[in-house]
Design a protein around this nucleic acid. Sequence first.
RNA 1: CGGGGAUUAGCGCAGUUGGUAGCGCGCUUGUUUCGGGAGCAAGAGGUCACGCGUUCGAGUCGCGUAUCCCCGACCA
Length: 585
Amino acid sequence: MYLSKLIGRTVKETPRDAELVSHRFLLRGGFVRQYSAGVYGLLPLAQKSIAKIEAICREEMNRVEGQEVKMPCLATKELWAESGRYSAIGKDMFRLNDRNDKPMVLCMTHEEPVVYFARTELTSYRQLPAMMYQIQTKFRDEPRPRGGLIRLREFTMKDAYSFHTSEEDLQNYYWQVHEAYMRFFKRTGCNNFVSVLSDNGMFGGKFSHEFMMLVPSGEDTLITCSSCDYKANQEIATSPYTHTTDAEKALEEVHTPNVKTIDELTKFLGITAANTCKAVMFQTREQELVVAFVRGDLDVVEQKLKVLLQKEVFPAKNEVIMAAQAVAGSTGPIGLDLSKCWIVLDKTISAGTNFATGANKDGYHVKNFNLNRDLMSGLSDWQKKKVLNGDIAKARAGDPCPQCAKPLQETRGIEIGNIFHLGTRYSQSMSCTYLDQEGNAQNHTMGCYGIGITRLLPAIMEESHDDRGPVFPITIAPFEVHMCVLNKKEGDTEGTANEIYNSLRKNGIDVIMDDRDEKPGSQFADADLMGVPLRVIVSPRNLKEGKVEFKYRDGRTQAQTLPVNEVVSFVTAAVKAEYARYSLD
RNA sequence: CGGGGAUUAGCGCAGUUGGUAGCGCGCUUGUUUCGGGAGCAAGAGGUCACGCGUUCGAGUCGCGUAUCCCCGACCA
């Protein structure tokens, strides 16, 4: 490819709206252009790079017996209503009507379409296990797209779905895919990534893992242990915490004028936040109040709350708070109207004693609240059903590890892939069955596996760049070799460069040659922005000695000069060696 | 959905008390340069986001709308 013909120009100035390095370099290097919020077009550089990512992905999916399919992005309301998700998913799904006013959706993932396939194609135990995957556009009307290609409303995802006759078979296969993912990420040049336990969302099965690229700019917070192998997304990370238990003291109401926050309460009473029981108020879509109680020094993880309740929750509106007899600023577990609200108690509250908490009376708090004595014992059966116990607290750096009790750590990460145990969640709701050996209809046990293809490019740029531009692994670089031709009109520089270029291409090397009559500085700057790992510089200066220059984009060695007649074989071998660095076979 | 910011040439920006729009980069042509984003000369390029108002006159003032970005909320 001649650089003069490449579509997509580089720009010197940093685009105003780009904050992340990957976003800046994608725009400056002419990889992508924005169309609207969360909607980007890929120019040739990005398209080539992503095509290479997809090819590696196919190899790894095929290796675990996946079969590539393509399902439609456009689906009817009916299909999505079958699983219950048409109504369960809110505004994140793009919805539209066809010409006859029939409601349709743009798929944000493809469980429903794949079950549609499976219902007619996978009807016998003899066909199982089976896995279908596709590399397809997904549409999600994200509340806030951001970070260039990191969080998009339209993006490419590799999604895979496996079908099994048993839980054991699924779990066995789940770990095969886990291994395939590790291979895929290593082959695409990801360095610093881990798989962590993650939340299954409201509709998942029993467990799931997220693959996380560990970079400071990541959107997710991970809780890890440096002493053992515990790693989890903060959404589900847990800790036994440290707590003390005193003998129960008498419940006591205290007049606390103008005390609204935990901070004010601890100062007023001269106690620590860990001795308080904090109320955090949410509400459901049905306008029921959800009061979550957690130890005062901890925070509530909304995701955990949702899973426990099996309902979506939102910040509570005032009317809803008042209706349940809760008093903002003095909310406590005692005296709430359980016909209008849920109480969710974190395990730190049931484990501890003598908490200070709100009295549900303006200007009053209570001291020495003890859960069983002061709340549970006075409840009738129906009221007890509105009180849930569980783990809703946020684990933080420094809290003890749930496995080894050593202090936990926090890191940031970008989610680049996930694998989910789905079980029969979709096969049941959508009546998807096969006949087993005895001729009985059984629901398929399913797993699903995603990789954010479009996101992987910026994720790799986040961890692999310098201040001049990205440093791509050859396996996903838009080209393998970048030739700079300096002062091409001097002597036979241009002719020699063309000979090298043609010979490299004959050897199957994907090379881009800067054939423009640009100053050396411009050529180098543009080459740096394109991030191609190997570089050949042809110039009259070295040609006088019969040499050309070779260097690595990552600067791992000093630039070296090579005799002209050896360049082609040298570079060809270097390309091969470069691929070998990422090969696992 | 809350809070903040922005919108003027392809990109980055300036534009004073209201007087009919400019700079840098990029682009075109010529010329001299040539190892880390060159110099000179000559060009092309604008519905100042949109709408309504105030005014003799609006990029500038007022009201409204749209779009984009950031923080938070949210993120099958």
